[in-house]
Design a protein around this nucleic acid. Structure first.
Length: 267
DNA sequence: ATGGTCGCGCTGCGA
């Protein structure tokens, strides 16, 4: 079973690319972010025609998340608990294909001094609290999305220069790490312990051409899901196509039964 | 080189 996350930066602007990618990869579950469209205008039919069920939670112009699944979506939830005043469409969760999944678009934070950065940290705290509840249910689950946090130095193009900047600030990285200490696994890093690969490159300037990116799109797996993790890949080629998103998709393969991570230490 | 480029939806904002 393939589970993917993809910040599409407008599902309507990206529809041809998205449909081609779905046809070629045939993921079982897809977590979309930044759909940037109200639900009534979401291009549902074109995606349903490829055999996907949809759960969508959009808004005008900004944000917007969605879940696509080849199997029916049950128990759909469209808000992250913990802040009654949060009306931004940044979270959707469902149970499908024997696993619970969430598509998460963590606030970018604008800049370190902005109130939006505090909102980002609080949002990550809310994910933490909710994750504890999910762990109590005993289901396998995957929290995937655009986390707007590059966890470690290998996840940014210039760690010395970027330390303390937005998306690589110690405070947000500490908030992100708390999720790992709860027992979640960063699927890409578990499978690729050494790789410096990115999932986002700014449209501007030479960032893409110079491969100056960040790894901020993550699939975080619960312990029961991690037991079934086989591979995890960043689909970098999507960023090089015509009219790309500024993010590349990240996807993992999950087996039907528990498996083992490749053991790097056994030579 | 604190510029640069997208998407939305029509003016500047967010990323």
């Amino acid at each position: 079973m393939k589970i993917a996350t993809f910040n599409v930066n407008s599902v309507r602007a990206r529809l041809p690319n998205l449909l081609n990618w779905l046809k070629n990869l045939t993921p079982d579950i897809v977590l979309l972010q930044e759909t940037k469209v109200v639900d009534d205008l979401f291009p549902a039919e074109a995606i349903e025609d490829l055999g996907y069920n949809l759960a969508i939670h959009g808004q005008k112009t900004y944000n917007g998340v969605a879940i696509l699944s080849k199997t029916p979506l049950e128990d759909v939830k469209k808000s992250l608990p913990g802040d009654q005043t949060d009306d931004e469409s940044r979270y959707i969760e469902a149970f499908t294909n024997g696993i619970r999944v969430a598509s998460i678009y963590v606030p970018q934070g604008t800049n370190i001094e902005s109130p939006r950065f505090q909102f980002k940290l609080k949002f990550l705290d809310r994910v933490y609290a909710h994750t504890k509840n999910l762990l109590d249910f005993g289901e396998p689950f995957v929290l995937g999305g655009d986390w707007n946090v590059a966890p470690e130095p290998d996840d940014v193009y210039d760690p010395q220069h970027l330390l303390g900047e937005l998306c690589f600030h110690p405070d947000e990285r500490a908030h992100f790490r708390k999720l790992l200490w709860l027992g979640l696994t960063d699927a890409f890093r578990a499978i690729n312990p050494q790789a410096a690969q990115f999932s986002y490159w700014d449209y501007r300037g030479r960032y893409w051409r110079a491969n100056q990116g960040l790894r901020i799109d993550h699939l975080l797996l619960s312990p029961l899901a991690t037991d079934r993790l086989i591979k995890c890949t960043i689909d970098r080629a999507q960023r090089g196509l015509e009219n790309p998103s500024d993010h590349a998709p990240v996807w993992c393969e999950i087996s039907r039964a528990p498996t083992y991570l490749p053991d790097q230490s056994c030579e």
